[in-house]
Computed example of a mutant assay.
Amino acid sequence: MLTVNKTDLVRHHVPVTMADRFAFRLVGGLSTVASVLFSKRYGNRAVVLETVAAVPAMVSATLLHLRCLRRMVDDHGWIRTLMVEAENQRAHLMSFVAIARPSGWQRFLIVLAQGAFYNSYFLLHLLSPRTAYRVAGYMSEQAIQGYTRYLEDLESGVQTDIEAPAFAIDYWHLSPQAKISEMLVSMRADEAIHRDIQHAFADALVAGKLLPDLPATDLDAGSSIGLDEKRLDAS
Protein backbone atom coordinates (compact mmCIF):
# COMPACT_ATOMS: atom_id res chain seq x y z
CA MET A 1 0.00 0.00 0.00
CA LEU A 2 1.33 3.41 -0.92
CA THR A 3 0.88 6.54 1.13
CA VAL A 4 0.07 9.84 -0.55
CA ASN A 5 0.93 12.76 1.70
CA LYS A 6 0.58 16.49 1.24
CA THR A 7 4.00 16.77 -0.37
CA ASP A 8 3.03 14.16 -2.96
CA LEU A 9 -0.14 16.08 -3.79
CA VAL A 10 1.66 19.31 -4.66
CA ARG A 11 4.59 17.72 -6.50
CA HIS A 12 5.04 19.33 -9.90
CA HIS A 13 7.39 18.58 -12.76
CA VAL A 14 8.78 21.95 -13.77
CA PRO A 15 8.93 22.21 -17.58
CA VAL A 16 12.55 22.20 -18.70
CA THR A 17 12.65 21.38 -22.39
CA MET A 18 10.59 22.77 -25.24
CA ALA A 19 8.64 19.49 -25.29
CA ASP A 20 7.87 19.90 -21.59
CA ARG A 21 6.63 23.44 -22.10
CA PHE A 22 4.47 22.34 -25.04
CA ALA A 23 2.91 19.56 -22.95
CA PHE A 24 2.31 21.87 -19.99
CA ARG A 25 0.67 24.59 -22.07
CA LEU A 26 -1.43 22.09 -24.01
CA VAL A 27 -2.86 20.59 -20.82
CA GLY A 28 -3.41 24.04 -19.36
CA GLY A 29 -5.34 25.07 -22.46
CA LEU A 30 -7.53 21.96 -22.38
CA SER A 31 -8.28 22.53 -18.71
CA THR A 32 -9.24 26.15 -19.37
CA VAL A 33 -11.67 25.12 -22.12
CA ALA A 34 -13.27 22.53 -19.83
CA SER A 35 -13.60 25.09 -17.05
CA VAL A 36 -15.32 27.59 -19.34
CA LEU A 37 -17.78 25.01 -20.68
CA PHE A 38 -18.57 23.33 -17.37
CA SER A 39 -17.70 25.86 -14.68
CA LYS A 40 -21.12 25.69 -13.03
CA ARG A 41 -21.06 21.98 -12.27
CA TYR A 42 -17.82 20.20 -11.48
CA GLY A 43 -19.45 16.79 -11.93
CA ASN A 44 -20.25 17.52 -15.58
CA ARG A 45 -16.73 18.82 -16.17
CA ALA A 46 -15.27 15.69 -14.60
CA VAL A 47 -17.40 13.39 -16.76
CA VAL A 48 -16.00 14.94 -19.93
CA LEU A 49 -12.42 15.07 -18.65
CA GLU A 50 -12.40 11.49 -17.36
CA THR A 51 -13.48 10.12 -20.74
CA VAL A 52 -10.34 11.75 -22.09
CA ALA A 53 -8.12 10.98 -19.09
CA ALA A 54 -8.48 7.23 -19.62
CA VAL A 55 -7.01 7.48 -23.13
CA PRO A 56 -3.25 8.08 -22.51
CA ALA A 57 -2.59 4.99 -20.42
CA MET A 58 -4.38 2.71 -22.88
CA VAL A 59 -2.52 4.17 -25.86
CA SER A 60 0.80 3.96 -23.98
CA ALA A 61 0.18 0.35 -22.97
CA THR A 62 -0.58 -0.65 -26.56
CA LEU A 63 2.45 1.07 -28.07
CA LEU A 64 4.77 -0.13 -25.28
CA HIS A 65 3.51 -3.68 -25.87
CA LEU A 66 4.35 -3.43 -29.57
CA ARG A 67 7.71 -1.83 -28.88
CA CYS A 68 8.70 -4.57 -26.44
CA LEU A 69 7.67 -7.17 -29.02
CA ARG A 70 9.80 -5.52 -31.69
CA ARG A 71 12.82 -5.31 -29.39
CA MET A 72 12.10 -8.71 -27.85
CA VAL A 73 12.53 -7.39 -24.33
CA ASP A 74 10.58 -7.83 -21.11
CA ASP A 75 8.30 -4.99 -20.02
CA HIS A 76 8.88 -5.73 -16.29
CA GLY A 77 5.18 -5.36 -15.58
CA TRP A 78 4.85 -1.81 -16.88
CA ILE A 79 2.29 -2.69 -19.56
CA ARG A 80 0.03 -4.13 -16.91
CA THR A 81 0.56 -1.06 -14.76
CA LEU A 82 -0.57 1.21 -17.59
CA MET A 83 -3.61 -1.00 -18.22
CA VAL A 84 -4.52 -0.77 -14.53
CA GLU A 85 -4.24 3.00 -14.76
CA ALA A 86 -6.63 3.08 -17.72
CA GLU A 87 -9.11 0.92 -15.81
CA ASN A 88 -8.75 3.13 -12.76
CA GLN A 89 -9.51 6.25 -14.80
CA ARG A 90 -12.62 4.53 -16.13
CA ALA A 91 -13.69 3.89 -12.53
CA HIS A 92 -13.35 7.63 -11.89
CA LEU A 93 -15.66 8.25 -14.84
CA MET A 94 -18.30 5.76 -13.70
CA SER A 95 -18.33 7.34 -10.24
CA PHE A 96 -18.99 10.81 -11.65
CA VAL A 97 -21.59 9.52 -14.10
CA ALA A 98 -23.56 8.24 -11.11
CA ILE A 99 -23.55 11.79 -9.69
CA ALA A 100 -23.98 13.94 -12.79
CA ARG A 101 -25.93 12.23 -15.53
CA PRO A 102 -24.63 13.67 -18.83
CA SER A 103 -27.23 15.18 -21.13
CA GLY A 104 -27.50 14.39 -24.83
CA TRP A 105 -25.48 17.51 -25.66
CA GLN A 106 -22.74 16.54 -23.22
CA ARG A 107 -22.61 13.01 -24.61
CA PHE A 108 -22.14 14.52 -28.07
CA LEU A 109 -19.27 16.64 -26.76
CA ILE A 110 -17.76 13.54 -25.17
CA VAL A 111 -17.79 11.70 -28.50
CA LEU A 112 -16.09 14.63 -30.23
CA ALA A 113 -13.56 15.22 -27.45
CA GLN A 114 -12.63 11.57 -27.09
CA GLY A 115 -12.33 10.99 -30.84
CA ALA A 116 -10.17 14.06 -31.37
CA PHE A 117 -7.99 13.43 -28.33
CA TYR A 118 -7.45 9.72 -28.95
CA ASN A 119 -6.21 10.21 -32.49
CA SER A 120 -4.15 13.28 -31.59
CA TYR A 121 -2.56 11.58 -28.61
CA PHE A 122 -1.83 8.42 -30.60
CA LEU A 123 -0.08 10.48 -33.27
CA LEU A 124 1.82 12.48 -30.64
CA HIS A 125 2.95 9.23 -29.00
CA LEU A 126 4.28 7.97 -32.33
CA LEU A 127 6.14 11.22 -33.01
CA SER A 128 7.38 11.94 -29.49
CA PRO A 129 6.64 9.38 -26.75
CA ARG A 130 8.43 11.56 -24.20
CA THR A 131 6.07 14.47 -24.88
CA ALA A 132 3.03 12.19 -24.78
CA TYR A 133 3.98 10.80 -21.38
CA ARG A 134 4.58 14.33 -20.15
CA VAL A 135 1.12 15.40 -21.32
CA ALA A 136 -0.41 12.54 -19.35
CA GLY A 137 1.62 13.51 -16.29
CA TYR A 138 0.43 17.11 -16.45
CA MET A 139 -3.15 15.92 -16.93
CA SER A 140 -2.91 14.07 -13.63
CA GLU A 141 -1.43 17.17 -11.99
CA GLN A 142 -4.46 19.15 -13.20
CA ALA A 143 -6.78 16.44 -11.88
CA ILE A 144 -5.18 16.64 -8.43
CA GLN A 145 -5.68 20.40 -8.38
CA GLY A 146 -9.28 20.03 -9.56
CA TYR A 147 -10.15 17.47 -6.91
CA THR A 148 -8.52 19.64 -4.26
CA ARG A 149 -10.68 22.62 -5.28
CA TYR A 150 -13.76 20.41 -5.28
CA LEU A 151 -12.92 19.21 -1.76
CA GLU A 152 -12.47 22.80 -0.61
CA ASP A 153 -15.93 23.66 -1.99
CA LEU A 154 -17.42 20.72 -0.10
CA GLU A 155 -15.68 21.67 3.12
CA SER A 156 -16.79 25.31 2.85
CA GLY A 157 -20.37 24.40 2.02
CA VAL A 158 -20.31 25.87 -1.49
CA GLN A 159 -21.35 22.42 -2.69
CA THR A 160 -23.22 19.77 -0.73
CA ASP A 161 -21.26 16.74 0.40
CA ILE A 162 -23.81 14.10 -0.60
CA GLU A 163 -23.48 10.33 -0.26
CA ALA A 164 -20.94 8.66 -2.50
CA PRO A 165 -22.30 6.44 -5.29
CA ALA A 166 -22.54 2.72 -4.58
CA PHE A 167 -20.02 2.05 -7.36
CA ALA A 168 -17.39 4.24 -5.67
CA ILE A 169 -18.06 2.71 -2.25
CA ASP A 170 -17.50 -0.76 -3.66
CA TYR A 171 -14.51 0.16 -5.82
CA TRP A 172 -12.53 1.98 -3.14
CA HIS A 173 -13.92 -0.08 -0.25
CA LEU A 174 -15.29 3.00 1.48
CA SER A 175 -17.63 2.87 4.44
CA PRO A 176 -21.33 2.39 3.56
CA GLN A 177 -21.99 5.95 4.76
CA ALA A 178 -19.13 7.48 2.76
CA LYS A 179 -19.56 10.94 1.28
CA ILE A 180 -18.38 12.42 -2.00
CA SER A 181 -15.43 13.98 -0.19
CA GLU A 182 -14.09 10.54 0.76
CA MET A 183 -14.43 9.38 -2.83
CA LEU A 184 -12.50 12.44 -4.02
CA VAL A 185 -9.68 11.79 -1.57
CA SER A 186 -9.26 8.30 -3.06
CA MET A 187 -9.41 9.65 -6.60
CA ARG A 188 -6.86 12.35 -5.83
CA ALA A 189 -4.49 9.75 -4.40
CA ASP A 190 -4.90 7.66 -7.56
CA GLU A 191 -4.02 10.67 -9.70
CA ALA A 192 -0.86 11.31 -7.70
CA ILE A 193 0.31 7.82 -8.64
CA HIS A 194 -0.69 8.27 -12.29
CA ARG A 195 1.27 11.53 -12.37
CA ASP A 196 4.44 9.91 -11.03
CA ILE A 197 4.22 6.94 -13.40
CA GLN A 198 3.74 9.09 -16.51
CA HIS A 199 6.51 11.53 -15.60
CA ALA A 200 8.79 8.56 -14.80
CA PHE A 201 8.31 7.22 -18.34
CA ALA A 202 9.11 10.64 -19.80
CA ASP A 203 12.22 10.92 -17.62
CA ALA A 204 13.35 7.43 -18.66
CA LEU A 205 13.12 8.36 -22.34
CA VAL A 206 15.08 11.54 -21.69
CA ALA A 207 17.77 9.35 -20.10
CA GLY A 208 17.79 7.09 -23.16
CA LYS A 209 15.99 4.16 -21.50
CA LEU A 210 12.94 2.29 -22.75
CA LEU A 211 11.43 1.83 -19.28
CA PRO A 212 11.62 3.57 -15.91
CA ASP A 213 13.57 1.91 -13.13
CA LEU A 214 11.50 -0.60 -11.20
CA PRO A 215 9.89 0.91 -8.08
CA ALA A 216 10.04 -0.63 -4.63
CA THR A 217 6.53 -2.01 -5.15
CA ASP A 218 6.52 -5.54 -6.56
CA LEU A 219 4.65 -5.26 -9.83
CA ASP A 220 4.42 -9.02 -10.25
CA ALA A 221 2.68 -9.42 -6.91
CA GLY A 222 -0.52 -7.92 -8.29
CA SER A 223 -0.17 -4.50 -6.73
CA SER A 224 0.69 -2.54 -9.90
CA ILE A 225 2.06 0.44 -7.98
CA GLY A 226 -0.69 0.03 -5.41
CA LEU A 227 -3.58 0.65 -7.79
CA ASP A 228 -5.04 -2.85 -7.81
CA GLU A 229 -5.96 -2.65 -4.14
CA LYS A 230 -7.15 0.96 -4.57
CA ARG A 231 -6.42 1.57 -0.93
CA LEU A 232 -4.33 4.70 -0.63
CA ASP A 233 -4.13 6.76 2.51
CA ALA A 234 -4.21 10.54 2.07
CA SER A 235 -3.14 12.84 4.85
Rank of each mutant, 00 (worst) to 15 (best):
M18A: 15
M18K: 15
A19D: 11
D20F: 12
A23M: 12
A23G: 08
F24D: 13
F24A: 14
L26R: 13
G28C: 10
G29I: 06
G29F: 12
T32L: 11
V33D: 03
V33G: 03
A34R: 11
S35C: 09
S35P: 07
L37H: 01
L37V: 11
L37E: 10
L37F: 12
S39F: 13
S39P: 01
R41L: 07
Y42C: 10
Y42K: 02
Y42N: 03
G43Y: 08
R45M: 12
A46G: 10
V47G: 00
V48N: 03
V52E: 05
A54T: 06
P56Q: 05
A57H: 01
V59H: 00
V59A: 02
L63F: 06
L64Y: 09
L64V: 09
H65G: 06
L66E: 15
R67K: 15
L69R: 14
L69Y: 13
R70P: 04
R71I: 08
R71E: 15
D75I: 14
H76S: 12
H76P: 03
H76N: 13
L82E: 01
V84D: 06
E85T: 12
A86T: 06
E87C: 14
A91T: 12
H92P: 01
L93Q: 00
S95Y: 07
S95A: 13
S95K: 10
V97N: 03
V97T: 07
I99H: 02
I99T: 02
A100F: 12
A100K: 11
R101D: 09
R101F: 08
P102R: 05
S103Q: 05
G104S: 10
G104H: 10
I110R: 06
A113N: 07
A113W: 05
F117D: 04
N119P: 01
Y121D: 08
L123R: 13
L124T: 11
R130N: 04
R130M: 13
Y133Q: 09
V135S: 00
V135F: 04
V135E: 00
A136P: 00
Y138Q: 01
M139T: 04
E141G: 01
Q142D: 08
I144S: 04
Q145M: 12
Q145L: 14
Q145S: 11
G146P: 00
R149P: 09
R149M: 14
E152T: 15
L154G: 02
S156H: 11
S156Y: 10
S156R: 15
Q159D: 07
T160N: 04
